[in-house]
Design a protein around this nucleic acid. Sequence first.
DNA 1: CTGCCGACTGAATCCGGTT
DNA 2: GAACCGGATTCAGTCGGCA
Lengths: 373, 373
Amino acid sequence: MGVIEKVKRALATVDGILPLDQILMGDCIETMRGLPAKSVDLIFADPPYNLQLGGDLSRPDGSHVDAVTDDWDKFDSLGAYDRFTREWLTEARRILKDNGAIWVIGSYHNIFKVGSAIQDLGYWILNDIVWRKANPMPNFKGTRFTNAHETLIWASTGEKARYTFNYRSMKTLNDELQMRSDWEFPICGGQERLKKGGVKVHPTQKPEALIYRILLACTKPGDVVLDPFFGTGTTGAVAKRLGRRWIGIEREPVYIEAAEERIAAALPLDESALTTMQSPKAAPRVAFGALVENGMLVPGSMLTDAKRRWSAIVGADGSLKSSCGQAGSIHKLGSLLQNAPACNGWTFWHYEAADGLKPIDALRQTYLLATQI
Amino acid sequence: MGVIEKVKRALATVDGILPLDQILMGDCIETMRGLPAKSVDLIFADPPYNLQLGGDLSRPDGSHVDAVTDDWDKFDSLGAYDRFTREWLTEARRILKDNGAIWVIGSYHNIFKVGSAIQDLGYWILNDIVWRKANPMPNFKGTRFTNAHETLIWASTGEKARYTFNYRSMKTLNDELQMRSDWEFPICGGQERLKKGGVKVHPTQKPEALIYRILLACTKPGDVVLDPFFGTGTTGAVAKRLGRRWIGIEREPVYIEAAEERIAAALPLDESALTTMQSPKAAPRVAFGALVENGMLVPGSMLTDAKRRWSAIVGADGSLKSSCGQAGSIHKLGSLLQNAPACNGWTFWHYEAADGLKPIDALRQTYLLATQI
DNA sequence: CTGCCGACTGAATCCGGTT
DNA sequence: GAACCGGATTCAGTCGGCA
């Protein structure tokens, strides 16, 4: 640990001052002990899964599967993993504000231990969320079902605790349907996947779209998000983009270095580039929010109707806000402004393209083309 | 309990004879204790979820836990549910054959306790499966994500245990793609939903399609399926349709009555429909040498791989010899040349047919057809 | 510049019968 | 029970090379 980190941790401990927008190098549990009680709004945690892989695995074509063999995923026994889980979850609950909440992601290897501990420690589960992978690794030997999803648990600090849930944002993001407990995203790859010398920096980097949705749903701008298993800093990068404050805890200097660089390059929303995220596999129906989530339309950009009589600003959740303060989905705001009973937002709203005004439906078509074929 | 049931249970206990295709009335755990060890092939269990609903929780002895009003009670109910879960899962493991398996369905209220117990008791989790509800109940208050799925756990009796998985059947069922761990079905309604006087008989009747896929994937015709929380007998009805034997345990006479009626009306599929896609493993083994013996390949002829990178000469004994002097079976030489841990010689090696290069597996298929019919 | 083809890859508890 | 060895087994997507 460097001098600066030591000073930061000392400050955090003695004065109750949070080391915001920083990575604390060190052991997860020990470092959490140095953070003040009831001080953060949200915790996102991607702990080791305790995979217990047997021998090598090869594909039908004979090539070798690159497994997660890192030391940080090794535990002596199921009991040891259980104790580790309960220890960090205990610290997490101490650090959370009363109205805070926690998200934990895992697979069947560990999520039942995590969920069980969460319940035992007095948290109150609000939902379990399924991340359906659009492109999971197949089961090469044909011995089981393709392991095509991971599970997230969302819990408040207790049964009576209040918590943040931006219901409208989620509904708008999902094209005016309630957001369900099953979410589909592709695994993290392509440009988004951090590499060094052509080799992936971290074996289990999570997609930004996943964290984006969580932070959008469960935090307000300015809220403090703690990630005790920071890795290469997906949580930090998304928090910065969304105007949230963040704290990361990470043990491995290699990951920290990659994360620092990555977060420094991340742009807050109104400046962020068009291609920050990978396209997800498209559902037949495209939610307007998906275009925003995937960077095809930048939050803060302006839409108008074809004759530029009305204009509106795109929100981070895929909502639109007009200059006179009205807001809603693309369809709802269109009908409001025109004082019409209904409106097809896809053809009504236009964006400024390089070669002139175009309906946002063109973006939807592009999106479909990019993701369907 | 009627006299007949008593006699049946006595038989099961004393003689190790299974009471097949019958509903045993009684407490789940107590009745399971009367069944012989290592006697059933599959257990499907839909235990009560009633963890956080206050007074609905039943203790293992059948008594009801009072409404949860304070922390002490909450801990007590959580602990009571945990003990109940571990008790019935312990009996289940005793009853299962070594090569048997168990499926349990639950929601976030109970599935983490169930999964944790399954791991602690020595079962080996094979997959967790997500049932995505096509038509879930919305979250009326808008306070959380729509709870649109339930989770199933599939586990064998231990890490090294064999288990049944009809891979080909599942792949065929899924349009020639591996079956994934996320399944979509509508909730049980319409004609399928059992009603009496317009009121649903059971509050949580599961769709037959769900059980159908499970039994098709994890049992063979004639296998014995036990459902310790039989309810209105979905497991029995599907088992009968699919030509599997079944045993149900249920406490409530109302459910039993509905189940008996329902199962009596269920029609078995005829045998031809039960013939599912076979794994190649089930086909008789053909020695490569047999093809040579039968003149389908002439000793001295040349085989190559699909890209003609390697070639070898067929020996009179069905061995292959490469130009660089290496020799062995079709599999061994394939792996040697490629420097791979393993190789399926049937698909690796090709012969020169009239219409181009073909895998020698085609010859095997011809041979099988000629000798089987 | 585009389009096609091949190589590569991702949190994976990944074989089974016979000697 | 260990060792042997026959032989079954993959989906979606990205990226680079080449025509």
